[in-house]
Nucleic acid binder design. Structure first.
Lengths: 231, 231
DNA sequence: CGTGAGCTTGACTAGGTTCAAACGGGGTGG
DNA sequence: CCACCCCGTTTGAACCTAGTCAAGCTCACG
């Protein structure tokens, strides 16, 4: 197996883990490696959806921007996640890098061609798609029916779980996104995000040594806020 | 082709339209027909996801209910739409009938078995899944970043488009859902829904002869409300 | 050591929720 | 056949959460 894949943070992703060493090589041989600077776009929502990406390192947002400047972040994309598994001619969401990002890019056609020889591949891609759908529905519930503090509690536990896949930080982790990103993910404003953080801090559920370094001091209480309505 | 399929409202759905007459017969032969009364559940979120449904007639909601009673409707399901294309062991959303509903039910395993002989089928199922994802992301934007009137305008144009598939009502159509359902779909309260309807009525963009009969009097203005922010 | 971007906090405002009452139309029973 | 009731809807008034605007703070960087 090529060394690059061996060391890739996405090696254990839903897709790549489905493949043996030889198969990975085949997959890699038709991949283009791409790099994107922090703040730049991997792809734009209006681009024709010819490529699929698998993030190797860094973090992205999937977001949509309205003509009046209102923005909604649909998801935070971590290594191993896919971008561009889409219906329709265009992507419908843009992917913006929060970090310097590296990714594998495939021509959708080439991947579809591989489906025939490797049916697992197709299965996995669609398992991934339906997991994305489930996560999006979770978020829908949160946006529609939860208040600011509940939204932040949900967000913190979500990010904690995501980042735990890559490093087993104890209870502390570093947020790769700004307060504006968090606000645009949860459908609130920066100020409200900040106030909700402060309330959780005052109540002793979290700690913020720096603005972007979070310590979860009481996971159970946070989980209760998300589940029930103990405001 | 069996007469039932021939007359089915879902005959031209993304799935069934992919099949020739003989193939439809094969699909139908392994289907169970189910009927559900208005207000009853086709399936519950915690059920193990063994079955897939294709709605033949009637309208359903896909919804999630929190322990404290807060509810979020994820989608309105019309004839031809699928229910239960899911990852994970459970459905994760419940399906509730707004009308008397009839549907075709398949064992997920049986459908998966058909994939081998009919690869189109698998493709179609996943096209459908990714279209659902796109619609869910639209809704996410609306919930996160739009105000009450914009939400209602979006909702009306969405329902108008959906129902136009089945009958070419001119500018008038009948809502199959209550105000509460609309509220739980848009993440607002019944009263706010009602007030938003009234504002649109006063501004001459819609008419409500009965509470559930809507006439779109100015589609362009409604579309503007959804796109830009002409509040 | 100064600067600026991002974050926090405060004061005020506005849009949506809550609680309560009135309305309306369909269905039931006298 | 009419009166009544009930459920869903509409409207009103008070309240409250989150948004807006503005100032001050923090910390990384030049």
């Amino acid at each position: 197996m090529g060394e690059i894949c061996q060391k890739c943070q996405a090696r254990n992703s839903a897709l790549c883990s489905a493949m043996t060493g030889d198969e990975i090589d085949e997959l890699f041989s038709i991949a283009h490696r791409v790099k994107v600077d922090s703040g730049s776009y991997l792809l734009h929502e209006e681009d024709s959806a010819r490529f699929v990406y698998n993030l190797s390192s860094g973090v992205c947002t999937l977001e949509r921007l309205a003509s009046d400047g209102r923005r909604q972040i649909m998801a935070f994309v971590y290594p191993g996640d896919f971008i561009g598994i889409n219906s329709g001619p265009a992507y419908s969401v843009s992917a913006r890098a929060l970090d310097p990002v590296t990714a594998c890019r495939w021509n959708m056609k080439d991947v579809a061609a591989l489906y025939k020889s490797h049916p697992v591949l197709e299965q996995r891609v669609h398992e991934i798609a339906s997991r994305v759908l489930a996560a999006t529905m979770d978020q829908l519930f949160v946006l529609g029916r939860k208040n600011a503090v509940e939204k932040i509690a949900y967000f913190l536990l979500y990010i904690d779980a995501r980042q735990r896949q890559f490093d087993d930080h104890g209870d502390s982790f570093v947020l790769p996104m700004t307060r504006i990103d968090i606000a645009d993910y949860l459908g609130i404003t920066v100020e409200t995000v900040s106030r909700a953080f402060s309330r959780l801090k005052r109540r002793g559920l979290i700690d913020l040594s720096q603005a972007w370094t979070v310590t979860l001091k009481d996971r159970k209480a946070l989980q209760n806020i998300v589940d029930h309505t103990v405001i």
